[in-house]
Amino acid sequence: MQGYVWKFGNDIDTDAIIPARYLNTSDPAELAKHLMEDADESFPSKVKAGDMIVALKNFGCGSSREHAPLAIKAGGVACVIAHSFARIFYRNAINIGLPILESPAAAEKIEQGHEIRVDLAAGTIENLSTGEIYQAAPFPPFMQTIMDKGGLIGYVKWRLESEQS
């Protein structure tokens, strides 16, 4: 996948990603209308399908709300790259099939507006604007299997089916 970057800083919390005042619905499209609103009011109108978010440390800290990665996914963001993720956001992203990569080097070097190419399977991030290539840590096989099944629900269904047969 290839896309343009929106860059964010440290400790982007789930209230910034999707404020609680909008959590009276679980509709991803409705949530996406308010994506990152408290960090950047015009973000929902600026972000385009295939864009990517790059952030520094502890992205997605705070609440367990799965509405956060859902809003990012429904907002068309193809991948989130960060120096590090808060742990509940990290597992939520894997569970719902939102591509994420942890790469301190990429998070440090990639800037707003850069165009990047991401190979999820290989964990490589190519900065087309600067020519640099960064390597993210590969996912453990178990997490990769969940993602290959389209998320945790797909994984559970697959497991239940294979137990029956």
């Binding site: 709300r65 990665p69 939520n92 569970n95 559970v156």
Partner: peptide, 30 residues
């Protein structure tokens, strides 16, 4: 618990932790 402050019950000597809604769904099934 599908709430980040589920870690509260560590005060009682439990290993308790916040997860997301999909985790909660899978756990309700399995």
């Amino acid at each position: 618990g599908a709430d980040s402050h589920t870690c509260t019950y560590g005060a009682l000597g439990a290993m308790s932790t916040g997860v997301g809604s999909t985790d909660m769904a899978a756990a309700m099934a399995l």
